[in-house]
Lab assay of single mutants.
Amino acid sequence: VTLFVASYDYEARTEDDLSFHKGEKFQILNSSEGDWWEARSLTTGETGYIPSNYVAPV
Rank of each mutant, 00 (worst) to 15 (best):
Leu3Asn: 05
Glu46Ile: 10
Thr44Pro: 02
Asp35Gln: 10
Pro57Lys: 08
Tyr49Phe: 12
Tyr8Thr: 09
Gly23Ser: 03
Ile28Asn: 01
Arg13Trp: 07
Lys25Tyr: 15
Tyr54Glu: 02
Phe20Arg: 00
Ser41Met: 05
Val58Glu: 10
Glu15Tyr: 10
Glu11Cys: 14
Glu46Pro: 01
Ser31Val: 10
Leu29Cys: 08
Lys25Asn: 06
Ile50Leu: 06
Ser41Val: 05
Tyr54Gln: 06
Glu11Met: 11
Thr2Met: 13
Ser19Asp: 04
Leu3Lys: 04
Leu29Ala: 04
Tyr10Asp: 00
Arg13Tyr: 07
Pro57Phe: 07
Tyr49Ile: 09
Asp9Leu: 03
Trp37Ser: 01
Thr44Glu: 00
Asp9Val: 03
Asp16Trp: 15
Ala6Arg: 00
Phe20Lys: 00
Thr14Val: 06
Leu42Asp: 04
Asp17Arg: 15
Glu46Phe: 11
Thr44Asn: 06
Tyr49Leu: 14
Gln27Pro: 00
His21Ala: 11
Ala56Cys: 14
Thr47Pro: 01
Tyr49Thr: 07
Glu24Gly: 02
Val1Pro: 11
Glu33Tyr: 11
Gly34Cys: 13
Arg40Asn: 03
Ile50Glu: 00
Glu11Thr: 13
Lys25Gly: 05
Glu46Trp: 08
His21Gly: 07
Ala12Gln: 06
Ser7Ala: 13
Asp9Thr: 07
Leu29Lys: 05
Arg13Cys: 14
Ala39Trp: 02
Val58Ser: 08
Tyr49Met: 14
Arg13Asn: 09
Ala12Asp: 01
Thr2Ile: 13
Ile50Val: 08
Glu15Pro: 13
Ser52Arg: 12
Thr43Met: 09
Ala12Arg: 08
Ser41His: 06
Ser52Lys: 14
Thr44Tyr: 02
Gly48Phe: 05
Arg13Lys: 12
Lys22Asn: 04
Phe20Ala: 01
Tyr8Pro: 00
Glu33Trp: 10
Ile50Ala: 01
Ile28Trp: 02
Ala6Pro: 01
Ile50Tyr: 00
Ala56Pro: 03
Thr44Phe: 03
His21Cys: 14
Glu15Ile: 11
Ser31Trp: 13
Ala39His: 01
Ser32Ile: 10
Gly48Asp: 01
Val55Ala: 05
Val1Met: 13
Lys22Cys: 07
Ile50Ser: 01
Gly23Gln: 01
Trp37Val: 05
Glu24Phe: 04
Ser31Thr: 12
Val5Lys: 05
Phe26Gln: 00
Tyr8Gly: 07
Lys22Arg: 10
Ser7His: 13
Lys25Phe: 15
Val55Gly: 03
Trp36Leu: 07
Ser31Tyr: 13
Pro51Gln: 05
Tyr10Ile: 02
Leu18Thr: 02
Phe20Tyr: 02
Trp36His: 06
Asp16Phe: 15
Gln27Ile: 15
Asn30His: 07
Glu38Asn: 07
Leu42Asn: 03
Gly45Trp: 06
Thr2Ser: 10
Thr43His: 10
Pro57Arg: 07
Ser52Ile: 07
Glu24Trp: 07
Asn30Phe: 07
Phe26Leu: 08
Ser41Pro: 01
Tyr8Glu: 10
Glu15Asn: 12
Ile28Arg: 03
Leu29Glu: 04
Gly34Trp: 09
Thr14Ile: 06
Phe20Ile: 06
Leu42Glu: 07
Thr43Glu: 14
Gly45Leu: 06
Ser19Glu: 03
Ala39Cys: 05
Ala56Tyr: 14
Lys25Ala: 08
Trp36Lys: 10
Glu24Met: 06
Tyr8Ile: 09
Ala39Lys: 00
His21Leu: 12
Glu15Leu: 11
Lys22Glu: 07
Glu46Cys: 13
Tyr8Ala: 12
Val58Phe: 12
Phe4Ile: 03
Pro57Glu: 08
Glu46Tyr: 10
Val1Ser: 12
Leu3Asp: 05
Ala39Pro: 00
Glu38Phe: 15
Ser41Gly: 02
Asn30Thr: 08
Gly48Met: 03
Phe20Thr: 03
Trp37Glu: 02
Leu29His: 04
Val5Ala: 07
Val1Gln: 13
Glu38Asp: 04
Tyr10Met: 02
Asp9Phe: 05
Ser31Glu: 08
Val5Thr: 07
Asn53Ser: 14
Asp17Pro: 01
Leu3Met: 10
Tyr10Val: 01
Glu38Met: 15
Thr43Leu: 13
Leu29Arg: 04
Ser41Ile: 06
Asp35Tyr: 14
Pro51Ala: 04
Ala12Cys: 06
Tyr10Leu: 02
Thr2His: 11
Ser52Trp: 09
Ser7Arg: 14
Val5Tyr: 08
Pro51Tyr: 08
Trp36Gly: 02
Gly45Glu: 04
Asp16Arg: 15
Gly45Val: 02
Leu29Gln: 05
Leu18Asn: 01
Pro57Cys: 07
Leu42Phe: 07
Arg13Ser: 10
Tyr54Thr: 05
Pro57Leu: 09
Asn30Cys: 09
Glu11Ala: 10
Lys22Asp: 02
Ala6Tyr: 03
Ile50Trp: 01
Pro51His: 08
Ser31Cys: 15
Thr2Glu: 11
Asp17Ile: 12
Pro51Cys: 11
Ala39Ile: 04
Glu46Val: 09
Asn30Gly: 09
